[in-house]
Every structure is written in C-alpha cells, then in structure tokens.
Amino acid sequence: MLISKTEVPAFIQRDDMMDQLYRWALIEAAEAGLRNFGMPMKVQATYYQETMWGFDVEIIKEGVKMADLGINFDSNIVLKHEWVGRDAEGFPQMEGNADEISGKYIEIWKVNPEKVDEDTRSTIRAFCTGLVTALNKYYAFGSVFAEDI
C-alpha cells in the first residue's frame, strides 16, 4: 500500500540523499524509535543494481513485528538537462544534453498487507512526519542533520 510519494528534482544526487535519509533513520528510528515515534524499530538498507536504493523499517510492538515500511526510489526515469534557457516568449525551457536519471519519485510503502492497530498507525504517521521533515531539511540545507535557525 502506497502511503506517500514525491517527485525528486533531477539535479538532486540520489545516492547522497538516500544515504543521508538512511543514516537519519538509523539514528532516529533504529536507535531511538520508542522515544521518538512510540515503538521500537529496525532499519535495513535495500539495494538495486549494487546501489543503495532505499531502506526498510520494521515496527515492533512487544517483540512482535507489527508493520514493514519500505522507503525507496521508484523505477521511473527523469531527464536532467545541462541548463535552463528561454524560449521565444521568454519562458524557461530545458536546454542542452539530457541525462537519464533513475528514480523519479521517492516513495513510502506499507509492505505487509495486514491491518494495523491505532498505536501502530500513530507510530507510522509520526515516522513519516519525521522523514518528511528530514527530507525538507535536505532540500533546504543539503543535509538532513541541519538545524533550523
């Protein structure tokens, strides 16, 4: 079940962004999931063609796995052009050579189909909110660990 997805601009380096989000998840969820989000969690990297393409988050309640989340890039292609120019009317248009970049969207999936209780749902919501905040910091400051000033 798809929880959320957002398009990643072509100029963002996929490997750096996913590495930082993964390290954020290790610190915030795997080490402090109970304190930060309400339940203990395990985090494990996933790979596609020998490149870290995302990570899985296992949510645990009283020693039992309650839910699995998958955070990863999709398999769509986005074109990255060399520069932005102007057309005859002065509007921006992409110009120059175009490179194909894999991973048009970053997606959050609930992997297992079982329904979850309200405690698990609130943990998933809190984790997703924290992940989006980390992603916004990455876009704004170039690091998920940047502190708002």
Rank of each mutant, 00 (worst) to 15 (best):
L34V: 00
K61P: 01
Y139R: 12
T120E: 11
V116Y: 02
F127R: 00
E28P: 01
W83V: 13
S75D: 12
Y138Q: 13
D99L: 13
V57Y: 06
Y139F: 15
E50Y: 11
Q49V: 10
N112L: 04
D119L: 14
E28R: 13
L135V: 12
V78R: 00
A32N: 02
D148C: 07
S75C: 02
T129E: 12
I108M: 12
V84L: 09
A45C: 04
G63D: 05
F127D: 00
R86Q: 15
A32G: 00
G33T: 01
M17D: 01
L2G: 01
T51Y: 06
V8G: 08
L34Q: 09
R14E: 02
I149A: 15
A88H: 14
L69K: 02
A45R: 13
E107D: 06
A146P: 04
F145A: 07
I3E: 04
D119T: 14
R86K: 15
S75N: 12
L131F: 15
T129P: 02
Y139Q: 09
K115E: 09
E58K: 05
T133D: 14
A140L: 14
E7M: 15
I59T: 10
A10N: 06
S122L: 11
Y22E: 09
Q13L: 06
Y138V: 13
L2Q: 03
F11I: 08
I27T: 10
P40H: 06
R35P: 03
A98F: 03
G33M: 02
I101T: 07
D19V: 02
E118Y: 11
I59K: 00
G103S: 06
K110G: 04
N72T: 09
I3L: 08
I60W: 06
A88W: 14
G38A: 09
F127H: 00
I12L: 03
M66S: 10
I59M: 10
V132K: 07
A25L: 01
I77A: 00
M66R: 14
Y22M: 07
G96Q: 05
V64I: 12
Y47G: 00
E82P: 08
Q20K: 10
N36Y: 07
I106C: 04
G85K: 10
V132W: 09
V78F: 00
E28V: 06
G54F: 11
W53V: 10
R121A: 11
L21D: 12
Q44F: 13
E50K: 11
D74R: 06
R121D: 02
M66T: 10
I101G: 07
V111Y: 04
V57D: 01
I108G: 04
